[in-house]
């Protein structure tokens, strides 16, 4: 073959990607630790790192740290990581980069589930509410996947548009029911995500979302294969339906866990995996750690802003994430627009 001779003469490709990536990994890790530490020591109560470390802190400061600050920071980290992973997995299942629970109706279905528990089983334990929300979220994922079978999948923007419309319809139904039942205020609690109410005993379900993230990590290669499409997956001997079903469960449970704890956090599952994809691609095994770390860091950073911008008051986290996320989303759309179609 003549091409072999021709290509052999060219110099070997630069393989500097690996060390650069390790360096970036260290930077992201350090940033995450700094952000988490900052999150621990921001607030109205005076808790200073120095006094805690030297053992000079009074009992009240330690109490605030244990009951409020640590749970809140853990909740932020878990929510950010699991929502970003959900977005990544959804993008693999749908084979479209602009889907996430918030652009496919999944969040809206889960919110409807929450409202249903509030109307019929108001006394239900939080774990039950989360279960119902997860089941609704699962149903929502299924409905969405059914609908987009009829949509040409190569229409990059059409798929999330259909999802947003579906979400709009479900949200309208939810709002109508809440209005009739005089529950609009409770509804507002979930549609505006905030971690202000997170305390020990009120965030532990997020470990379930964290576990879903671990499932995503363990099955990373399977989700990569699914991202190639059904025919490739079948050729590689993978049970397509089973992996899609597992992915749907990961997405629905993560969404529901964050929803019952904090409420809807928009754009996160969309923006974070897309930024990671731009830099290191869509091999899930390679990207999932980055997606989790950047998702967690992004949410903690936004929450710090939410707590400090109007100190001592708080802005809902979803507002901050919405503003930053929408900006990033627009940038992604316009940036990719030139070669996405």
């Amino acid at each position: 073959m003549t091409t072999v001779a021709a290509t052999a003469a060219t110099p070997a490709p630069a393989r500097t990607a690996q060390p650069a990536r390790t360096g970036a990994g260290v930077a992201v890790g350090v940033a995450l630790v700094v952000l988490a530490a900052t999150s621990l020591f921001i607030g109205v109560s005076d808790v200073s790192p120095w006094t805690v470390l030297t053992g000079g802190a009074d009992e009240r400061a330690l109490f605030v740290l244990a009951v409020s600050r640590v749970p809140r920071t853990l909740a932020l980290l878990l929510s950010g990581a699991s929502l970003a992973i959900s977005g990544l997995i959804m993008q693999m299942l749908v084979r479209n980069r602009f889907v996430e629970p918030g652009t496919t109706g999944v969040s809206e279905f889960a919110t409807l589930g929450m409202l249903v528990t509030l109307i019929w089983w108001p006394g239900m334990a939080l774990v039950g509410k989360m279960g119902v929300a997860a089941v609704f979220g699962l149903a929502g994922t299924w409905v969405f996947l059914r609908i987009i079978r009829a949509v040409p999948t190569r229409q990059l923007v059409l798929v999330p548009l259909v999802g947003i419309m579906l979400g709009g319809i479900v949200a309208a139904v939810t709002t109508f029911i809440a209005y009739r039942r005089d529950l609009l205020q409770s509804l507002g609690q979930w549609t505006q995500g905030s971690f202000a109410g997170v305390m020990a005993g009120r965030y532990e379900f997020l470990w379930v979302a964290g576990a879903m993230g671990v499932v995503g990590w363990v099955a990373a290669d399977r989700f990569s294969v699914i991202g190639l499409g059904e025919e490739f997956a079948t050729n590689l001997g993978l049970n397509y339906r089973r992996v899609v079903a597992a992915g749907m469960v990961v997405i629905a449970v993560s969404t529901a866990a964050v929803l019952v704890t904090a409420g809807v956090i928009p754009f996160l599952g969309l923006v974070v995996p897309n930024v990671v994809s731009l830099i290191i691609g869509d091999n899930v095994r390679r990207s999932i750690g980055w997606v989790a770390a950047l998702g967690a860091g992004f949410v903690v950073a936004c929450d710090i802003l939410a707590r400090t911008l109007r100190y001592p008051y708080e802005i809902p986290l979803s507002v901050i994430v919405g503003v930053v996320g929408a900006g990033l989303f627009l940038w992604l759309l316009l940036r990719r627009g030139s070669r996405a179609h």
């Binding site: 693999m92 084979r95 479209n96 980069r97 190569r154 990569s224 991202g227 190639l228 499409g229 490739f232 994809s277 731009l278 691609g281 869509d282 091999n283 390679r286």
Partner: peptide
């Protein structure tokens, strides 16, 4: 074969 995911040849 239309692949949406950004994968390298090695991937």
């Amino acid at each position: 074969n239309h692949i949406v995911a950004r994968l390298t040849v090695q991937d």
